[in-house]
């Protein structure tokens, strides 16, 4: 019972009153971005460049921001919680970019 009491006197981070409309707005944004993704894939079918990959990863990060920010409520939590989760992931994105470039060098060695 003790831990339940603890939950009680947490000062709850505010959920906006118009949460429902925010959720649906986010849904349409995610849907739109996915359609943009697919459209870009076919528009840029014959181009192969790291810039194109960067564009797709950037679109993925934008979608991730909406999912984490609105759906997972991160936008309305304490900033310290946000940094705890988001900062390590920034390094992961950096790691992804590094290994894509590294893969290109492996390609040059092989072919």
């Amino acid at each position: 019972m003790e831990h339940m009491d603890h939950t009680e006197h947490l000062e709850h981070t505010e959920t906006p009153a118009d949460m429902k409309s925010k959720i649906w707005r986010t849904f349409w944004i995610l849907l739109g971005l996915t359609i943009v993704d697919i459209a870009l894939y076919f528009a840029l079918l014959s181009t192969h460049s790291m810039l194109k990959n960067a564009l797709f990863i950037l679109l993925g990060v934008v979608k991730a921001w909406y999912i984490v920010g609105i759906f997972m409520h991160m936008k309305f939590e304490r900033k310290v919680l946000m940094y705890m989760i988001v900062l390590p992931m920034i390094f992961v994105v950096f790691f992804i970019a590094l290994m894509l470039i590294e893969g290109d060098y492996t390609f040059l060695l092989r072919w």
Partner: peptide, 25 residues
């Protein structure tokens, strides 16, 4: 009080998800 202003369970879920994100990454 919780410095993150979330309950213990939620905080642990966030930390688990971060570690799971590393695996997927």
């Amino acid at each position: 009080k919780s410095p993150f202003s979330v309950s213990y369970g939620k905080l642990m879920m966030w930390i688990f998800l971060l570690s799971d994100a590393f695996t997927f990454s």
